[in-house]
């Protein structure tokens, strides 16, 4: 992969994940984010969390998956994430199937450290966007 060869509107390989409570709890342990909104279905039901009464997946898990779209695409070839700016716009629940997507939308040529902008978005099985954002990525 070379910076010169990148094409605008080029799509990155998508990641698709079926979310389970076990997966959410596993991420809680790995990230140390044990907020009960993620790991305690009993409490979530009791307080009717966000009007749904169900636990929600970590926003940080969603952000991780969006960054994986980038790292799967370019890290083996020397690419490197420069920044991310992600908005989480809809909760993700156990049982949802989420697709994580990326697309090259801008190129920033530099004598050294050229980088591109990747538009990132995640959508659920109903086609609703659950997260949107931008990553800047150094490509050699």
């Amino acid at each position: 992969m070379r910076f010169e060869d990148l094409e605008l509107e080029q799509l990155l390989p998508t990641i698709e994940v079926k979310v389970t409570q076990e997966m959410i709890t596993r991420f809680a342990c790995a990230s140390l984010d044990f907020n009960p909104i993620h790991i305690d279905p009993v409490w979530a039901k009791k307080i009717n969390l966000l009007g749904y009464g169900k636990t929600i997946a970590h926003g940080q898990w969603t952000i991780d998956k969006l960054t994986q779209v980038v790292t799967n695409w370019c890290y083996a070839e020397g690419g490197k994430l420069k920044s991310i700016d992600i908005k989480l716009i809809h909760p993700i629940f156990a049982g949802d199937t989420i697709k994580f997507n990326g697309k090259v939308v801008a190129k920033h040529p530099r004598r050294e450290d050229s980088f591109c902008e990747i538009e990132l978005w995640a959508e659920n099985q109903n086609g609703e966007k659950v997260a949107v954002g931008v990553a800047e990525v150094f490509i050699k």
Binding site: V17, A30, S31, L32, Q60, T67, Q68, T71, A76, L81
Partner: peptide
């Protein structure tokens, strides 16, 4: 542990002792 929990099997992280970007959460 973080790579396993995020189903990330990219050898760049497994073989080179480099953390994936969002390991920063932990």
């Amino acid at each position: 542990a973080y790579l396993e929990a995020t189903d990330n099997y990219n050898p760049v992280f497994w073989e080179e002792g480099v953390a994936p970007p969002m390991f920063l959460t932990t």
